[in-house]
């Protein structure tokens, strides 16, 4: 029973808090520009309004155009539920890889829904999304290898909680760049642009409206929250803190990341598309050097947890309750 309540609470937390992040980012941007800006809760109002609206679909689209949005959204929720939040939760060896591939499912659905409309612009956006994601995914998996070497484990709950080693700054920088790329924030894409030719994510969802658009927007904010939490947990030694301090630190870190994204967006122009691969390669190299530092650090002593894990891989339960 407590498992059920725990799951529902975590789910509610993810779903309800996600739309806050874009609100914070927009507020920061408005402050920097000297405007008042929309309220922090603007996305909640938008989502509620969109959910009640009717739908306009293109003549061309298949049912996949709507259903794919839902599948992608569920994939993002699943990825979110794999991230550890305090005690308990879903955890098993290898869930880190499932996490990465659930994000890929979301990408697959969004890109296919974009191609479904037969629009040249949406095709362009889908092509950019799947191409840049190649480099972003490489960077993420390298970061995960670094965390796996650091902790000697392959489960997000143990990978993300121990105090990270010397390469934390490198890893943080790399993951931050990936966060910007995967969520189509400024140096890669401008969420506020109105020119279809230069968009990545926004152009893919041009033909969505009403409830599907609400799902897309909510999914996008959820993805932003997922990457923020991943970055925060990878960088902060949350496992070493008491529960309330860890929660506060996590919340603070996520807020700081949102503010950071807002500041980047205020002070940086977006890059030309030909510069995007270079920046993502840089993110990959940052993660790679974080991996190298972790490797050098762990060479001097294999941690006890890794020995225990490799000794008894079969004993892991279906729902791992971390002691």
């Amino acid at each position: 029973m407590s498992l059920f309540i725990d799951t529902v609470l975590r789910l509610a937390g993810w779903l309800l808090l996600a739309p806050l992040i874009p609100g914070v980012i927009n507020k920061v941007k408005a402050w920097v520009a000297g405007r008042r800006g929309p309220p922090v809760f603007q996305l909640y109002y938008d989502l509620a309004k969109l959910w009640r609206k009717g739908v306009v679909l293109s003549h061309v689209v298949s049912p996949m155009h709507v259903a794919g949005v839902a599948v992608g959204w569920v994939a993002l929720v699943g990825a979110a539920m794999l991230l550890p939040l305090g005690e308990g939760g879903l955890a098993f060896r290898g869930d880190a890889i499932l996490f990465v591939y659930l994000l890929a499912v979301a990408r697959f659905c969004t890109a296919l829904a974009a191609l479904d409309t037969g629009s040249a612009f949406e095709g362009m956006g889908a092509a950019r999304e799947v191409s840049y994601a190649v480099l972003a995914e490489v960077a993420v998996i390298t970061g995960l290898v670094a965390l796996a070497v650091e902790s000697g484990s392959l489960s997000l709950s143990t990978m993300l909680t121990p105090s990270p080693g010397a390469g934390v700054a490198l890893l943080g920088a790399g993951l931050f760049i990936v966060l910007l790329a995967e969520n189509c924030r400024v140096p890669f894409d401008d969420p506020n642009t109105h020119l279809e030719l230069t968009m990545v994510h926004e152009v893919m969802v041009l033909d969505h409206s009403g409830p599907p658009l609400a799902a897309v927007l909510h999914g996008a904010s959820l993805k932003l929250l997922i990457f923020s939490v991943l970055l925060a947990e990878a960088v902060l030694p949350l496992g070493a803190m008491p529960a309330w301090a860890a929660a506060a630190a996590l919340a603070g870190a996520v807020l700081a990341i949102a503010i950071g994204v807002g500041l980047v967006e205020s002070f940086l122009a977006r890059f030309a598309f030909r510069r995007v691969p270079l920046l993502l390669t840089t993110a990959f190299l940052l993660c790679l050097f974080a991996l190298l530092t972790a490797w050098k650090g762990s060479e001097f002593g294999v941690t006890e947890s890794s020995v225990a894990e490799r000794g008894a891989p079969a004993a892991e339960p279906f729902f791992g309750w971390r002691p």
């Binding site: 009717g54 739908v55 306009v56 679909l57 293109s58 003549h59 061309v60 709507v66 409309t117 037969g118 629009s119 040249a120 612009f121 041009l206 033909d207 009403g210 409830p211 599907p212």
Partner: peptide
């Protein structure tokens, strides 16, 4: 989506 009926329009280009 279908409960309230779907309006059809050309693809946005």
């Amino acid at each position: 989506v279908t409960r309230r009926g779907i309006r059809r329009a050309p693809t946005w280009d």
